[in-house]
Amino acid sequence: MKRKSHACLIVIMVAIILVLMVVLYGTINFQLSGGSVLKTDYKLTGKPLYRLDISWPKNPEHFTGAVFGVAVNHITGLVYVAQRGDNVPKVLVFSTYGDFLQAWNTSTLEMPHGIFLANASSNPSVWITDVGSGPYGHTIKQYSPAGKLLQVLGSPGKAGTDVRPLQFDQPAEIFVHSSGEIYIVDGDGGLNNRLIKLSKDLEVLWIHGEKGMGPGQFYIPHSVAVDSFQRVWVADRGNKRIQVFNAVTGDWLGSWGSCFSVDAPYSVRLTPDQKYFIVVQLNTNQISILEAPPVGMIGECKVVSTIQLADDIKPHLVDLDLKAGALYVAEIGARQAQKFIPFYWGTTIGSFL
Rank of each mutant, 00 (worst) to 15 (best):
A120V: 05
Q167G: 11
K148W: 02
M111Y: 12
L166P: 04
T129P: 01
R164L: 15
E110Q: 14
P145M: 08
D162M: 07
P135F: 03
Q151C: 05
G157T: 06
M111H: 13
T129M: 01
I140F: 00
S122L: 11
P112Q: 10
Q167P: 08
V152Q: 10
T108W: 02
G132R: 13
T108H: 05
F116N: 08
G147F: 07
L117D: 05
S107F: 09
P145E: 06
V163W: 00
G132T: 13
R164Y: 14
I115T: 09
K148H: 06
W127N: 03
K158D: 06
I140R: 00
S121G: 10
S121W: 03
H113C: 14
G137F: 07
T161Y: 09
A120G: 04
H113N: 15
P156D: 02
A146F: 08
A159K: 11
V152N: 07
L149F: 07
L150A: 04
S125K: 02
R164C: 11
Q142M: 13
I115H: 01
V131C: 13
I128E: 04
F116I: 01
G132P: 11
N119M: 04
S107Q: 14
V152A: 06
L150C: 02
P165Y: 01
V163C: 03
V126N: 03
T161P: 02
I140S: 00
K148C: 00
D162C: 04
G154I: 08
A159E: 08
P124S: 11
P145A: 06
I128Y: 00
S125W: 00
N123G: 08
A118D: 01
N123S: 15
P156N: 05
Q151V: 05
E110G: 15
I115G: 02
S155F: 10
G132M: 13
G160Q: 03
F116Y: 13
L166F: 02
P135I: 14
S107N: 14
T108F: 07
K158S: 11
A146I: 10
L150H: 04
G137R: 09
Q167H: 12
K158W: 07
N123W: 09
A118E: 05
A159N: 06
I115R: 01
S107C: 07
G137N: 10
S122G: 03
L109M: 14
